[in-house]
Design a protein around this nucleic acid. Structure first.
Lengths: 199, 199
DNA sequence: TTCAGACTAAAAATATTTATTAGTCGAAAA
DNA sequence: TTTTCGACTAATAAATATTTTTAGTCTGAA
């Protein structure tokens, strides 16, 4: 294997600097020149590596999202019962959200007004969440922890879990009670869990 | 008892017309002149009966909110088990929301940007919801349907229920899937219910 | 006591100018 | 050939000035 292609290194540099800047100043207030300066290159050089600003932002979000979900997946896979997996999922998600509050805010709030992007990213994000949840639920059905929900019911359950959690998340963020988040989420999950477990 | 005081009649007329207009055009796009014209009075007359526009809007919201919650309370009180009460609560709330989508939108979305009002109304609205839920839960503890949750746990449960439901509501409204609302809510409530019922 | 018309001050909408910034291009450096 | 840059433009956003609308007041009439 040869050394990493030079252009891949630079692309990755650009992404790293862009990530920092977006996190600090948000999407709108970070200019292409800011990014170029941070990388130590001219502005037009960025356009040699990326089509435009949106492509950079997309790449940043995709990368960060992947990190989040890799971490979550890792935590989830450590547990061996579906119930514990679900608890791990929530705990892990909370931790990730706190760790990346700024970028999360960008995705959740700033981007919320930037219609084109919003839908894509937010939906994509939720889909991944729902996917993970669904796989956990499916696992629970297999292990016999949960009753024999059919595919449609599992979809609905995953949908409900994602959005119920988000409802609580939003309320706590709006009242800036992030510190109560864990406790309340634990309680919510334990209730939901017991609910799912019945028949 | 004498005939209803004349000014009470007019105040009520103003409220009725204002309600219609707010429902049709929203808070911002309804002017005091519009209301006055609809009532068939001059604009300044409105100020004889109400301090300002906000007071009118407040009164409209309070009145509508009372109707909603009276209807919900009525439906809830018909049931005699806590579980059925909770189901009735959700079903009834869904129906009320659909019935008043427009005004609900005003409260939920338009007012969301109108900071001063937002907090007051939204919080007030949620409080009432949470109060009803809490009383249902308390009832369930008394009847033995639910385990012996203490006061703090009941508060938390009510908070969770309100916001979990709102999360799902919001998602469905955003995707304009109001028709799936009942089905999904039923499912959510049944899950939550079973969760609450355990120990 | 109840109302209206004329009024004001504040806010909202509009138009206009100015400043930034995303993205292009052709040419130079590596 | 691959990578970089400086100079340029067109579009977007920010700032400013201008007009219109509208909430709320005041005086006085019925």
């Amino acid at each position: 294997m040869t050394t990493l292609a030079k252009d891949e290194v630079i692309k990755s540099d650009i992404l790293d600097e862009a990530t920092k800047l977006f996190r600090h100043y948000g999407l709108q207030k970070t200019t292409m020149e800011d990014i170029a300066k941070a990388v130590g290159k001219g502005k037009s050089t960025l356009y040699y590596y990326y089509k435009n600003k949106e492509e950079i932002f997309d790449a940043v979000i995709r990368k960060e999202k992947n990190i989040i979900f890799r971490n979550i997946q890792e935590d989830v896979s450590k547990e061996d019962s579906a119930v514990k997996k679900l608890e791990a999922f929530t705990r892990s998600k909370m931790r990730e959200i706190k760790r990346m509050t700024t970028l999360y805010q960008v995705v959740v709030s700033e981007v919320r007004s930037c219609n084109e992007l919003e839908l894509g990213i937010r939906r994509n994000y939720d889909c991944t969440e729902a996917e993970i949840l669904k796989s956990i639920l499916q696992y629970g059905v297999i292990t016999g922890e949960f009753p024999n929900y059919d595919q449609q019911e599992l979809d609905m359950l995953a949908f409900l879990l994602v959005n119920a959690q988000r409802g609580v998340e939003t309320a706590l963020i709006m009242e800036s009670k992030l510190d109560e988040m864990s406790e309340k989420m634990d309680f919510l999950v334990s209730v939901l869990m017991n609910g799912i477990r019945r028949s």
